[in-house]
């Protein structure tokens, strides 16, 4: 679905005469291979290159070196830009910056309308995408009366209506309350499961990552760690070095193990820790 080979992106700053003042390497020879239908989470501190990578996948930026194929199309070719953007949709942090129409269904229909989709087909897609994110009953509402999570789901519906093969969500939950965060993450997983849309989720909330197929950790423009959530979160020390964290239950499980209790490594979910703790309690009881 997405194939990056030695992708480099440099932000070049020039002074008034056009002389190069400074060069910041935001992506430093990134190799990436995302299979269709995968759910990938990308972690990394502020400035690690996550968003730059996301913008490349949407052909919003042009690489300084290397190649990037999205759905088999080379993003550096002019004629591929629009098809690439149609196959890889993007959702950003602030829902208020992404919603433009005054009625929910019109906002969702904006994308397909813009690309010349016939009217009947537009309405069909609007209905399907709103249903897919669980917002169909709000179709006639005004977006500004919705909660943050609902607005973000409308923004996702707007992307879904373009029938992309892949959706990149760049910190979609950063501005949301706990409920809104849950709604958005659940929606991303449902789209992934039900229609096999490839998902790239960029986030700072470690808890949102535990159900991903694969986690990438970025640092200084490089992919520095890669693996299943369990593999990644069992390396607490390394994550801290990259200014990241692990879910609270993982920290707690680690602390308990350090205190000599028989708790397995890489506990990610609450249920796992509940079972592990109860097992320890039962063993104690028998002694």
């Amino acid at each position: 679905m997405i194939k990056a080979k030695q992708l480099v992106h440099e932000y070049i700053r020039r002074d008034e005469e056009g002389n190069v003042e400074s060069v910041t390497t935001a992506l430093d020879h990134v190799d990436l291979n995302v299979k269709p239908g995968e759910f990938i989470a990308i972690l990394g501190h502020n400035g690690s290159g996550k968003s730059t990578l996301a913008k490349h996948i949407n052909a919003l930026l042009v690489a300084s070196e290397g190649t990037l194929l999205v759905n088999g199309m080379d993003v550096s070719r002019e004629e591929n830009i629009l098809p690439v953007r149609q196959s890889a949709g993007m959702v950003f942090q602030n829902p208020d910056n992404q919603i433009i129409a005054s009625v929910v269904e019109e906002d969702v229909g904006f994308g397909p309308e813009n690309t010349g989709v016939p009217t009947e087909e537009i309405w069909r897609r609007v209905e399907e995408s709103l249903a897919a994110v669980g917002m169909l009953k709000y179709r006639h509402h005004s977006p500004n009366k919705l909660s943050g999570g609902q607005k973000q789901r409308v923004a996702i519906a707007g992307v879904v209506a373009m029938q992309p093969r892949c959706i990149v969500l760049d910190e979609p939950t950063a501005m949301l309350d706990p409920n809104g965060r849950r709604e958005v993450i659940r929606t991303a997983h449902e789209l992934n499961r039900a229609s096999g849309v490839t998902i790239l989720l960029i986030t700072h909330y470690m808890e949102e990552v535990v159900d991903a197929d694969r986690v990438l950790v970025m640092d200084q423009g490089k992919v520095v760690m890669q693996g299943t959530p369990r593999e990644i979160f069992s390396q607490v020390g390394k994550l801290k070095e990259y200014r990241l964290d692990v879910p609270q239950v993982t920290i707690l499980a680690d602390l308990l193990r350090q205190s000599g209790l028989d708790i397995p490594r890489g506990v990610l979910r609450r249920e796992e820790l509940v079972e592990a703790v109860l097992r320890v309690a039962q063993v104690e009881d028998m002694q």
Binding site: P178, N179, Q248, V249, L252, R270, V274, L278, A281
Partner: peptide
Amino acid sequence: LEAVGLAAPQVTYLMHELKSRGL
């Protein structure tokens, strides 16, 4: 809190679950 879109910290949920399981 959940009914109004909020939540408790994760560890609080964990403790409630353990308690309901008899610990």
